[in-house]
C-alpha cells in the first residue's frame, strides 16, 4: 500500500514499475505479512488448487468411456506425465508419478493463471520455486542414499574416465549436483518474472500515444510467447525432476 502511495507521488512522464505486480500484500488489510496471513499469493495458490480440482476431479467425474472435453484434457495431462516418467526416469519411478504429477499440475496451472491480467504469479517468487526445487533435491538425495547407500556417491566418481582426472571430475560433479536446485528454481522463477516484467514495461510505453499501438501489439506477442513459456517451463521443471529421479534410482554413470 505504502509503495503505491510513494509511486503516486512521482506522477508525470514515463513511469515503470514492472516489479510491483510481484509484491506480496495482505488481502484483508492488517499490518505486515506473518506466516499465517492470507495474502494475494495465498489467494492465487487457492485458485490454482480450485483450477486443478475443476480439471482433474470435476472434469473426470463422468468417468466416461468416450471422454468429454474436460476429461480428455485431464487424460492427456495424465498420459503425458505418465509417459514422461516412464521414458525418462524408468519403469520403477512410476511410484513417484503422483508426486511428479502434483508438481507439474501445480506449476503449469500457476503459470497459466499468472497470465490472467492483474493476477499474481505464484511461481515468479523464489520462495515458491526454491521450495519446489529443494523438495525435489531432498527427495532425490535421500532416496539415493536410502536405495543405494554409499554406492550413491558413485554418481560423482566417473569410473569411465582416466584415474588422473577423476578427482577433478568428481569436484565438478559435486558442484553441478549442488547447483541443481539453484538452477532448477531460478529458471522457473526467472522465466516467469522476466516475461511478466517485460509485458509490464511494454504496458508502460503504452502511455505515450505515438508508441501505444506498437506497444499493444508487442504486449499481444509477448503474451503468446508467455503462454508457450508457461507450459515449457513446467515441462522442463518436470522433466528435470524425472532426470534427477533417474540418477537416484540408477546412479551408475
Amino acid at each position: 500500500m505504502a509503495t503505491e502511495a510513494a509511486h503516486g507521488g512521482e506522477e508525470g512522464g514515463l513511469v515503470f514499475h514492472p516489479m510491483d505486480q510481484f509484491i506480496v500484500k495482505p488481502l484483508f488489510g492488517g499490518e505486515g505479512v506473518h506466516w499465517y496471513t492470507i495474502t494475494n499469493a495465498t489467494l492465487w495458490m487457492a485458485l490454482t488448487v480450485l483450477a486443478i480440482v475443476a480439471l482433474m476431479v470435476l472434469g473426470t467425474s463422468g468417468r466416461n468411456r468416450i471422454p468429454s472435453r474436460m476429461q480428455s484434457v485431464a487424460e492427456m495431462a495424465y498420459g503425458f506425465i505418465y509417459k514422461m516418467v516412464e521414458d525418462v526416469a524408468g519403469k520403477d519411478a512410476i511410484r513417484f508419478f503422483p508426486y511428479i504429477f502434483t508438481l507439474f499440475m501445480f506449476i503449469v496451472t500457476a503459470n497459466l493463471l499468472g497470465l490472467v491480467p492483474t493476477a499474481f504469479t505464484v511461481t515468479s517468487h523464489f520462495a515458491a520455486t526454491i521450495l519446489l526445487a529443494l523438495s525435489v533435491f531432498l527427495t532425490v538425495t535421500v532416496l539415493g542414499f536410502v536405495l543405494h547407500g554409499k554406492q550413491f556417491l558413485g554418481l560423482f566418481w566417473v569410473s569411465s574416465a582416466p584415474l588422473a582426472v577423476r578427482p577433478l571430475l568428481a569436484l565438478i560433479e559435486v558442484i553441478s549436483y549442488f547447483v541443481r536446485p539453484v538452477s532448477h528454481s531460478i529458471r522457473l522463477a526467472g522465466n516467469m518474472m522476466a516475461g511478466h516484467a517485460v509485458i509490464k514495461v511494454f504496458a508502460g510505453f503504452a502511455a505515450i500515444a505515438a508508441v501505444s499501438p506498437i506497444s499493444i501489439v508487442a504486449i499481444a506477442g509477448m503474451y503468446g510467447l508467455e503462454l508457450l513459456v508457461a507450459f515449457i517451463q513446467a515441462y522442463v521443471f518436470t522433466i528435470l525432476t524425472c532426470v534427477y529421479l533417474k540418477d537416484a534410482l540408477h546412479p551408475a554413470h
Binding site: 506480496v24 505479512v33 506473518h34 506466516w35 499465517y36 496471513t37 495474502t39 499469493a41 495465498t42 495458490m45 487457492a46 490454482t48 488448487v49 501445480f106 505464484v122 517468487h125 520462495a127 515458491a128 521450495l131 519446489l132
Partner: peptide, 12 residues
C-alpha cells in the same frame, strides 16, 4: 514474505 509463501505453498 518468504515464511508466508512457503507455509501456504506447502499447504497447497
Amino acid at each position: 514474505t518468504w515464511g508466508n509463501q512457503i507455509f501456504w505453498l506447502i499447504v497447497t
